[in-house]
Design a protein around this nucleic acid. Structure first.
Lengths: 357, 357
DNA sequence: TTGAAAGCGTTACCAC
DNA sequence: GTGGTAACGCTTTCAA
């Protein structure tokens, strides 16, 4: 009815041009901030635009320029503090570089990840940051990369896939804490992760599709082997996907008579459940059970005892991935780079020498 | 050079149509899944599309349809577990309804929030979910809403602003825990929040721009007044924005000779720092200091003692906001709804009766 | 059921 | 400097 008050249809450059008494092309120049215009005209257009409350349509702009000013990010689970911190790093850098972030959760599910990437590509994001659910299944990523859209991998690389990648030195970190536990006399050391196999039994590191976790388990097993502890495969517990599942696994694991004397938790969400469970069943940390967790989550410092953790530079992980991507977006066309960020063990009080067995 | 291998330019409906030997319109019909086509033609087009590896351009699609299939979300800080959980709720519902989420951090800064909304509107999101940094400063939100884009407010309403809103019963929750503390004999009760004023001194609840926090402080002060504790305004501590700042405030607060005997932390990030600080300066919880925190963060259950908290239905907060928005997007045109979700006090062991003073 | 052509709101090229 | 106009890739009348 009243096209003035209920401004359903948004005002366009054409409207502004008409009001300012110039051509569409000229109005577009000042509104888009490109080309050259006289000061007089610039002012006229600016005034008209303000009067009409002109808002550029980025969609149309993207259509013609081919760039959307958007970075697509696919992570496993934004609820996990690891990812929310990494995403914070990504968005900070992205915004700084003038990009908007579209975020999609994969729920660590490959088919969801594929759908997410299809959506993102359809929306014509300028680049992608992905933490692949399975590093063995990256054909969709290859394809996205081949389509000319820069791609950066976060936290999980793929050795057979040459793209910009930012990971932590997981293998080294795992080896380090494993060695430490062994030196303290531990022999029955468990590693527990959310990763899973169809039969929920761990056979070889190749069973593990999540790059970062596979590297950690390799570090764990290799170190055990070097120390003369063979066949530690049976101490790798899988399927700790939800807190509930983790609790069940932890209970079974810790209540058995041949229970581990030390546990390595693959992330802080798992670490928390191990901590809760050990308390629940009355297993004293660190006297009866040593615990080391990956990810220096905030709570790990305030428990009694505080938990020894592998501190990963999570924010920087995200930051770096975004930086690499932005460089590509700005035309950098060099060979793919693999960045490995250093971790650090934060010694607290959840680890103790094994007294006797 | 070789337009076949390096498929820079993406394949369009026109390409598919040509290959299938039909018109652009027909190809578009089967590719877009609308209108009616014969089975023969449908197959031909489908085959051609697959052969060419056609990927729809959502941008172009949005241009003509006017809808982008996108929801814009603006939160204070994705790093805060409160928001990451709420965002999880939003994205789950959004994906289920076929929408993608664009996420922007405001850093609790109004001007950043304004910029975010401008960006989102420019990208022609179909709807917006915002947790406004300042509820007094919502003109940009009003405007976004007026432009015909549905808007839902998350966790922070604005009483003078009629839009779909989802909040928790913060006032009631704050009143409840305050009453409980008073009944336990506490008189010097502190409330500590990230909200801030220019002079960092609290005068009246109107100083507080964050809706949820203002309601809590009102509940706190009202209850104190009713209980015959006047002028409790001086026990409201502001400016706990970063963990570092919080630590400083906590130290000053807890080391003074007239220190509080009970502290209410406005969120779990603050609660954690209070906990750390009290331990650092050797103040026993709950014997020497009672602590109640808003937000049932995972760590609160595992400290010694575990922390009594106000459990907010955070995931549902996000979920509900998304649901309201999706309904609007599907044409619901009824009056704005204000949903208030119930909180619940989880009694743990960080609160004790005040022995003597 | 199919095709031709007119948009959608920009940018970008090319004359003037 | 400025204006006309052709893209961009899709949807959507309107005829045939």
């Amino acid at each position: 009815m009243d096209p003035n008050s209920s401004q359903r249809a948004s005002v366009t450059v054409a409207d502004v041009a008409r009001k300012a008494g110039v051509s569409k092309a000229t109005a577009a120049r000042v509104l888009g901030g490109y080309g050259t215009v006289s000061d007089r005209v610039r002012d006229a257009v600016t005034v008209a635009a303000r009067a009409l409350d002109y808002r550029p349509n980025e969609l149309a702009r993207s259509m013609t320029t081919g760039r959307s000013g958007t970075i697509g990010v696919v992570v496993g689970d934004i609820e996990n503090p690891f990812f929310s911190l990494a995403v914070r790093g990504i968005t900070d850098i992205a915004r700084q570089a003038g990009f908007t972030v579209i975020l999609i959760n994969s729920g660590e599910d490959v088919s969801a990840e594929k759908a997410a990437i299809r959506t993102l590509v359809a929306k014509r994001v300028d680049g992608l940051i992905v933490s692949p659910a399975k590093e063995s299944d990256v054909e969709h990523l290859r394809e996205a990369a081949r389509s000319g859209r820069p791609l950066a991998l976060l936290d999980r690389g793929s050795e057979a896939f040459e793209v910009d990648t930012v990971i932590a030195d997981d293998r080294h970190a795992a080896a380090g804490i494993t060695r430490q536990l062994i030196e303290l006399g531990h022999r029955r050391i468990a590693y527990i992760t959310a990763c899973d196999t169809p039969d929920r039994v761990f056979h070889t590191p190749n069973d593990i599709n999540t790059g970062s976790v596979r590297r950690r388990v390799e570090g764990f097993l290799d170190t055990c082997r070097e120390a003369g502890l063979p066949a530690m495969e049976r101490w790798v517990y899988m399927g700790a996907v939800t807190p509930e599942q983790t609790r069940q696994i932890a209970k079974r694991m810790l209540e058995g008579k041949n229970r581990p004397t030390a546990v390595i938790a693959s992330d802080s969400v798992i670490g928390l459940e191990i901590f809760k469970t050990s308390r629940l069943i009355g297993l004293a940390i660190p006297q009866e059970l040593s615990l080391i967790s990956f990810h220096d989550a905030d709570w790990t410092a305030v428990t009694s005892p505080p938990v020894t953790v592998v501190r990963q530079p999570v924010y920087q992980l995200g930051e770096t991935a975004a930086k690499l991507l932005v460089e590509r977006l700005n035309g950098n066309d060099t060979a793919p780079r693999k960045v490995v960020l250093r971790t650090e063990v934060v010694e607290r009080a959840s680890v103790a020498r094994l007294l006797e067995d």
